[in-house]
């Protein structure tokens, strides 16, 4: 296996990781600030993708679509927070699991009711198609490079938001002591709505960006949701830094495992069998990674708090 291929696969892993980070950061914020387990986070990913596809198709502008996707996800997020989630903060985690599971069903089938069973069309705009040639004659799709860029920008923006702004200060205060922040005169319910909508918007953005590379269809959020949970658990729940590192780790391990495990098994197995065994093991790899990490660090790599 050549070095250029390795470089390209590492880029692929990083790109997968940055998109997982967009999902995971919202999930981990919501858990950190409100103590809420939100299974319906994948639904915002789907809402973002569908809204982007619909608006891109009718306006012809991908950027308008993206803006619409993020806005729609944020609005739906705020609405869900006001109508449902708000009643769950003081309830046990298990009630939150049941309620957000119900929300998944409602969102998935509601989307199918509105948009039909067929997958939607959403492609990258023409100015983002094609590829760039990197040193060592590695060709890399421009769109994926852009995704990595967006991921980096969002990470930096989140860092500034949380460490430098008033909202960020409140979020941090909320993470360390939920009772305290109310005593400080902060309007908690408004803060919660804002944080929830922010998380939803990030998920919507991820869905819109990735939707252009994948199939925009009902249920697209569920596999990503599971991966995002893996990420925040590896990173340590409530920690944005942990989410970032966890996302990159999962992205890299998943991508490299898929490529190199079959090759590894080929050293001592017939090719066809090696591909099968390698692929099977690759599918399990991130779960093995998670189990090993939690066995040694039961609160993830960067536990913020319980």
């Amino acid at each position: 296996m050549s070095v250029t291929l390795l470089i390209e696969q590492i880029l692929n892993g990083v790109q997968l990781g940055t998109m997982l980070f967009l999902m995971a950061s919202g999930l981990t914020l919501v858990f950190g600030v409100m103590g809420l387990i939100n299974l319906a986070h994948g639904s915002f990913y789907m809402v973002g993708a569908y809204a982007t596809a619909a608006v891109t198709a009718s306006t012809g502008s991908f950027l308008m679509g993206l803006a619409a996707g993020m806005t729609a996800a944020a609005l739906v997020g705020a609405l869900v927070e006001l109508l449902v989630i708000r009643r769950l903060y003081h309830r046990p985690h298990l009630d939150q699991v049941l309620a957000t599971f119900a929300l998944i069903l409602i969102f998935s089938e509601g989307t199918r009711w509105i948009f039909g069973s067929s997958p939607m069309r959403l492609s990258p705009p023409s100015w983002l198609t094609g590829f760039v040639t990197l040193p060592g004659d590695t060709r890399y799709p421009l769109y994926r490079l852009m995704l990595i860029g967006v991921g980096i920008v969002i990470s930096i923006a989140l860092y500034f938001l949380i460490s430098k702004t008033r909202l960020g200060m409140r979020i941090r205060a909320g993470e360390s002591d939920r009772e305290m922040i109310g005593a400080l005169g902060v309007n908690i319910s408004k803060l919660y709505t804002v944080v929830f909508a922010l998380g939803a918007a990030l998920a919507g953005l991820a869905g819109a960006l990735v939707g252009a590379l994948q199939s925009v269809q009902v249920g697209m959020g569920e596999p990503v949701l599971i991966l995002a949970f893996v990420v925040i658990v590896i990173g340590g729940i409530g920690s944005i830094k942990g989410a970032l590192l966890g996302a990159l780790l999962v992205g890299l391990v998943d991508t490299l495992g898929r490529v190199y495990l079959p090759i590894f098994f080929r050293a001592f197995m017939p090719p066809s069998e090696a591909s099968g065994v390698g692929a099977a093991l690759a599918a399990m790899l991130i779960y093995i990674l998670m189990a090993v990490i939690l066995a040694f660090k039961p609160k993830g790599l960067f536990a913020a708090h319980d």
């Binding site: 858990f31 387990i37 985690h93 599971i226 949970f229 893996v230 658990v233 729940i237 099968g276 692929a279 099977a280 599918a283 399990m284 779960y287 093995i288 998670m290 189990a291 939690l294 066995a295 039961p298 609160k299 993830g300 319980d306």
Partner: peptide, 30 residues
């Protein structure tokens, strides 16, 4: 034995991880 070293959401997710391993194994074992 491994999972009970963790608590809360970590426990939820590590039990999921083991189940997923078995799921993928069963899916691809001919």
């Amino acid at each position: 034995a491994i999972s009970l070293r963790t608590t809360g959401v970590y426990f939820i997710m590590i039990t999921l991880a083991f189940a997923q391993m078995i799921y993928y194994f069963a899916n691809s074992w001919p």
